[in-house]
């Protein structure tokens, strides 16, 4: 999704109203309860919260020129990988096997077999259509952020096709966008 993302894709940035700001905070807090105590630090009430609209209905939540969260249309907010690396505990985790890493890093969606094989691991409670962190076998940090296409149980039972949509992965356009101004 962010494969070819660059700052040129930002079609408009605006500082959002306080009410919208509150809504975004609430959404993020609902999605990631562990992050809630940190939100004051991350999204200070004083400093302006900027929402950058990009192509393909992507919104980026930007604080101090650093993109922190993104979402698609009205979907759930997802942290950027840099943020997730700092707070790895906030998201549900899926793990892919070693063979899948290079495809994921090229932007491929995560196929079920990569999650169900020996190197993979699933968080059983994840329903369909929810954001997950994609970890990798033998690695400590997340390599992608995905959006489940089916629930974890379905992934196990069907074991075929796309299990998780790859939203954001290491070295994609968003990853390379350290600052947005």
């Amino acid at each position: 999704m962010f494969k070819k993302f660059s700052s040129e894709e930002v079609t408009g940035q605006n500082q959002v109203k306080a009410s919208v700001q509150r809504k975004i905070r609430q959404n993020i807090a609902d999605e990631y309860p562990d992050l809630e105590p940190l939100l004051d630090e991350m999204l200070p009430k004083k400093s302006p919260l900027i929402v950058a609209k990009c192509q393909n209905h992507i919104n980026l939540v930007v604080v101090n020129n650093v993109p922190l969260f993104f979402n698609v249309r009205d979907g759930p907010y997802m942290p950027t990988l840099r943020l997730l690396h700092q707070y790895p505990g906030i998201m549900k985790k899926f793990r892919v096997d070693r063979g899948a890493i290079k495809f994921v890093l090229a932007g491929a969606n995560i196929m079920c077999p990569g999650l169900t094989s020996a190197g993979g691991n699933l968080d059983e409670e994840v329903p369909a259509d929810s954001p997950v962190a994609i970890m990798a076998e033998g690695k400590e940090h997340a390599l992608a952020i995905g959006y489940t296409k089916m629930s974890a149980k379905d992934i196990k039972s069907i074991n075929k096709g796309i299990g998780v949509d790859n939203m954001h992965y290491l070295n994609d356009g968003l990853w390379k966008t350290l600052h947005l101004d």
Binding site: Q86, Y87, P88, G89, I90, L105, K139, N171, K176
Partner: peptide
């Protein structure tokens, strides 16, 4: 939560393990 310090490679910008 305390932020985790991640070692990023300056060459390819990814975490060193990748």
């Amino acid at each position: 939560l305390q932020p985790v310090q991640v070692l990023y490679c300056p060459v390819c910008s990814m975490p060193a393990e990748y």
